[in-house]
């Protein structure tokens, strides 16, 4: 397929966004599958970042940073998959436009003990018509809900896939990524 001259064609770069509340397993998820250590890059908030309390101030002024998880998977020699984990709080939503632009789709991770933490992410992806699925992380000590209850609690349509996942387990993370690609295909073909 590749007509190689001395300059090799660049890989096609595709990205998937992982969102959800704090402590929901985003960093773990990215780290479980990334071929590089899940790197945390910093996005700068230079605009008024009122109410940002879980970020570290750098220059004392209005500049604060937000940690983004960044993972990379080489799918083949011409295809790169990037994963970006981003905090799901409303106040970070200005970051999302940038992250989500051109994304294949998104995965919203939820902890059944705090489903409401995922609302801003879900609202955002719905409003912007980004294909997304919900990954339910089973935390020890978390109550078991059935998927119907979770769907009702989230208020997402029946069309949005909700899958169980263990962000610590590579195979499980892989399954979630595959489920997202299936959802993207379904939307495209439907």
């Amino acid at each position: 397929m590749s007509a190689r001259s001395d300059v090799v064609a660049p890989p096609i770069a595709v990205k998937i966004v992982i969102s959800g509340g704090f402590g929901v397993g985003k960093t773990t998820f990215v780290g479980a599958i990334s071929e590089i250590e899940p790197l945390v890059t910093e996005a700068e908030l230079t605009e008024a970042s009122i109410g940002v309390d879980d970020t570290s101030a750098v220059s004392g002024k209005t500049t604060t940073t937000v940690a983004l998880d960044f993972g990379r998977i080489t799918l083949d020699d011409a295809l790169l998959l990037y994963l970006f984990g981003t905090p799901g709080q409303d106040r970070f939503s200005f970051l999302w436009d940038d992250l989500v632009d051109g994304a294949l789709g998104a995965i919203v991770l939820i902890d059944t003990r705090r489903v409401e933490d995922s609302f801003p992410s879900i609202d955002y992806f719905e409003e912007n018509r980004i294909p997304f699925i919900v990954g339910v992380n089973r935390f020890d000590g978390g109550m078991r809900f059935d998927l119907r209850e979770i769907r009702d609690a989230l208020g997402v349509s029946d069309a949005v896939p909700i899958v169980e996942c263990d962000a610590r387990d590579r195979v499980s993370v892989k399954d979630v990524l595959v489920a997202l690609t299936e959802e993207v295909l379904t939307r495209r073909l439907g």
């Binding site: 595709v14 998977i73 799918l75 295809l79 294949l104 892989k174 595959v178 993207v184 495209r188």
Partner: peptide, 18 residues
């Protein structure tokens, strides 16, 4: 980069991830 991901490319992503 491709302006839009083709169906076959998305299928390739899925298969490679799997």
């Amino acid at each position: 980069q491709p302006a839009e991901l083709s169906i076959s490319l998305i299928e390739r992503i899925r298969d490679r991830v799997r």
